[in-house]
């Protein structure tokens, strides 16, 4: 019984939140890794693209809510999501047209694209602030829980409750579907293979008749979609605050690098690894220890690190992986 209680506490406070967070990180890292693999630079504006996309989704959600449109038990933001993705894609394609294409045409060294992405980051950051402000926004509506603590306790008769928030379940379902779709696209479709070919060898892709600009456009659209989905899921799960999206850049980069930059599978593995470590290391294990080993009295919370240091966790994982496996868990494009 105690073991079951411990398991429930573990699921409730560690496993489920970490899985949801990991899915969000993985989606973000997928965008970063695709841009790195195919456009060949780390996009510092990715966090702000997430924020911008989410801001658009929120605006559309508000509009829908004002019109009285809802999605039953699901959050209205889900209907707004495709519109948000379309608008963000347009924005990102516009950015490419105005900023990045110039350097691509010159075959400039990728570092200048990194610098340009810093400029884009400033602009996007400002635009997001302009559009929606800097305050914390909750835009989650619909049913809040799939399983509540009370229902769970009543159902199982355990002392500990398990809550499954609908946003968490939604995050996992959507993220899973998106990942499947992405892998199907990359490995099974002609366009997806062309994208991988372009990533492998730009010139040869061109000599095979693949239109590079088309590949680039597709990458941007996919990256914008991934960023908007990741941002919206993160915002539904936690709340929307523009600055948080800037801060999430570090764990996202860490996830992408830990997995192996340029490797989509790696990005997903990295996302979950970073998320689970972050949650596990900053969680006070006292309660679980109380069930598993009631005789042990640690005299503390059994929390390895305060939650304030969660960024340190992703950083340490990053360093460890880089020291022992410089190409990341899955062999990426960087060596």
């Amino acid at each position: 019984m105690d073991i079951l209680n411990a398991l429930v506490v573990f699921l409730n406070f560690v496993f489920i939140p970490a899985a949801a967070y990991g899915a969000q990180l993985a989606l973000g890292a997928l965008g970063v890794t695709l841009i790195y693999g195919i456009l060949r630079f780390s996009n510092f504006a990715h966090g702000d693209t997430m924020a911008f996309g989410t801001a658009l989704v929120i605006l559309v959600t508000w509009g829908l809510q004002a019109l009285g449109v809802g999605f039953g038990p699901l959050p209205t933001a889900l209907i707004a999501l495709p519109i948000g993705i379309a608008l963000t894609s347009l924005m990102v394609l516009g950015t490419d047209r105005v900023v990045y294409r110039f350097y691509r045409r010159q075959k400039a060294a990728p570092i200048i694209l990194v610098m340009a992405s810093v400029g884009v980051m400033f602009v996007m950051n400002g635009l997001t602030r302009l559009v929606i402000g800097v305050d914390e926004i909750r835009f989650d509506d619909g049913e809040r829980f799939i399983v509540t603590v009370r229902d769970f306790k009543a159902m199982t008769g355990l002392d500990e409750g398990l809550a499954l928030r609908s946003t968490q379940a939604l995050t996992l379902v959507v993220a899973f579907a998106v990942m499947i779709a992405l892998f199907w696209f990359l490995n099974r479709t002609k366009s997806g293979k062309a994208m991988r070919a372009y990533s492998d060898n730009e010139d040869l892709a061109l000599l095979s008749g693949i239109d590079p600009e088309r590949v680039v456009r597709q990458v941007w659209i996919i990256a914008a979609a991934l960023a908007t989905i990741a941002g919206t899921l993160y915002g539904l799960d936690k709340s929307f605050k523009a600055f948080n999206y800037f801060q999430i850049l570090l764990p996202i980069f860490a996830a992408a690098i830990v997995g192996g930059l340029g490797s989509p599978l790696g990005a997903i593995a990295g996302g979950f690894l970073v998320a689970f470590s972050e949650v596990a290391i900053t969680y006070p294990w006292l309660k679980i220890a109380g069930y598993v080993a009631p005789w042990y009295e640690p005299g503390g919370l059994m929390q390895l690190l305060g939650t304030e240091y969660k960024f340190a966790v992703s950083f340490v994982i990053l360093i460890v992986v880089l020291l022992f496996r410089p190409t990341g868990l899955f062999r990426g494009k960087s060596v």
Partner: peptide
């Protein structure tokens, strides 16, 4: 740590250490 590897990982490493130092200062 970040400069000794086969290629540099300085950008991500400094991004991380920057966040951590500020976190230490805050907490």
């Amino acid at each position: 740590v970040a400069l000794g590897l086969r290629s540099d990982y300085l950008a991500i490493a400094t991004l991380g250490i920057g966040e951590i130092i500020v976190a230490v200062m805050k907490n």
